[in-house]
Design a protein around this nucleic acid. Structure first.
Lengths: 136, 136
DNA sequence: AAGCTAAATGAAAACGATTTTCAATTTCAA
DNA sequence: TTGAAATTGAAAATCGTTTTCATTTAGCTT
């Protein structure tokens, strides 16, 4: 366990979910400017490999990383402000597991994402559109 | 409507789901070698923009494209052979819509992915591991 | 049909996140 | 302490995606 590796691990678990490599890199640099980007990247990959993190891909070209917790969750992704928030998927996972079973598929992970508008962005939109389009 | 555009549109709908830009490019080239990659790419984006296709991102660095159909579906992604197959998510979408509603989130799309092993890859694995590891 | 403008095309380059290379350094077990 | 193996940092390579730009084309308007 090198000091750099420890820094990366600690930083990752200090940060919340949905961390990008860049964000983690910045966080690590707060403690030690000399740590290289590739070291952060490699150790983040290592965290994934040992099962402590998993990649989250919302299709914006940047991979984010979630801590793997005991509680499975889905993601709300706001297409407007790009924010990512979590929600519980307890029951849903049961249904999905059943689905997988029906198809003889052995599930390892469930990725559930709802894209749309978060509450804030809904408000922004409606406040801008003062004149409503009522008809088609 | 340029002939290139028509070629791209036709090719996209002739191919099945989960098409990559490269695959579409190859398909288009079968009809007309002179069509450029960027033309294929731009028109595929256009197909998305008008709502006839949507991006599918399984986190392997390549964007795939699905035709938008009336029937919502989830994806089984085999982490071994990288195959992508579809399954029905009728009931699940209902639960997710409710979830979104509870969180004041306005859903536009639901992405449901189950990662794991397809039946074929399960068989391969078990046939290879003749000597089983029984204990931790 | 000719002329015109905006849109579309193809080739190449730019972009940007990710991944690899490589020489130097560090860890850790013997 | 010593040597092999692992790790690091900097730089470059990769690779899918996106943009640029000069040229061509589509499709209106007359």
């Amino acid at each position: 366990m090198t000091p750099q590796r420890e820094l990366v691990f600690r930083a990752f678990f200090e940060l919340g979910d949905h961390v990008t490599v860049d964000e983690l890199y910045d966080k690590v640099k707060e403690k030690d400017k000399s740590v290289g980007y590739s070291t952060v990247w490699r150790n983040l990959k290592l965290i994934c490999k040992v099962g402590l993190a998993e990649e989250v891909n919302i299709g914006d070209g940047v991979t984010r990383y979630d801590r793997v917790t005991q509680v499975p969750h889905g993601h709300f992704f706001c297409v407007e402000c790009k924010s990512l928030t979590e929600f519980s998927v307890d029951q849903i996972v049961g249904v999905l597991a059943q689905s997988a079973n029906d198809h003889k598929f052995v599930p390892e992970a469930f990725k559930i994402e709802i894209r749309g508008l978060c509450q804030q962005c809904q408000n922004k939109k409606t406040s801008l559109n003062t004149k409503e389009e009522v008809r088609d």
